[in-house]
Design a protein around this nucleic acid. Sequence first.
DNA 1: AAAATACCTTAGTAAAATTGTCAAGTATTA
DNA 2: TAATACTTGACAATTTTACTAAGGTATTTT
Lengths: 148, 148
Amino acid sequence: MLRLSRKGQYGVRAMFEIARGHGNKPVPIKEIAERQAVSVAYLEQILNKLKNGGLIRSVKGPGGGYVLSKKPEDVSISAILNELEGPVAITSCLDPEEGCVRVDGCVTYMLWKSLGEKIDAFLRTVTLKNLLTGTLFKKADKRLKKSA
Amino acid sequence: MLRLSRKGQYGVRAMFEIARGHGNKPVPIKEIAERQAVSVAYLEQILNKLKNGGLIRSVKGPGGGYVLSKKPEDVSISAILNELEGPVAITSCLDPEEGCVRVDGCVTYMLWKSLGEKIDAFLRTVTLKNLLTGTLFKKADKRLKKSA
DNA sequence: AAAATACCTTAGTAAAATTGTCAAGTATTA
DNA sequence: TAATACTTGACAATTTTACTAAGGTATTTT
């Protein structure tokens, strides 16, 4: 249950690939597609959304490709998934576009809302930098080093 | 993103209805269906799964219905959703039945695994009792009262 | 200038998952 | 023994996902 769509997964991995090239040359879409074994055409749709969201910029022409708009440590997984799939909304009544039908006495409303907030809070703490360095929990790691 | 299926939502609400009658008479399926505006036939499938999972028992004959197998405080949301939809598996590579294809260097593996664990940890802390009393965060509430 | 490279956009579509319905039962008790 | 209530399996409608296809635009190197 609660599975993330492949689009979201591809998006995060694509952002990771672009982040790897941060500071160097732009990363061409073809290269990303090969690494992920996804078609260029499909990846284009995904990167297009991320571009419209301002997370990446594109450089046209030979030698072109995609570049991060911000530093890797300033791009959270939450931001990426938000752009691709909208906000976390465990139930439709929590979706800003749909809204709750049965207003009266929705006992589970708070449950799903809380869960959604927990999830997003976690995803906001993880950035591309964390993926690059392999340290998922920055603060936890620092604490460990201090106490060691 | 990360939406829970209606089956899961109905299941939790149905368990809530059954929990409300805990200690009294069994709750007939017809009553649950009316409260939730779902067909009896569909609800039957859901309750059947929950019954096979040992979360509820059924009482046949006139005056019969469904009863909780355990006390409300011993039934977590995690247990309910697990029975209906299997374990939390953000990606297919984390699904026990599918497994990971690209074994080498899956940078996002830990990310999705950690997220899944966070989610399940939260859902294990919330029980039907919490829904009944309206106190989602038992411990947090107690702390607040103490410090007040 | 023109050819090559690479991004950009929209429309459509096949497969899979979801969300149910329907029919024909079986078990229990007033 | 009739009424109530649960049980099971098949299957159909709808929606979502995960793409493919096709044509276009922008930039740079030669």
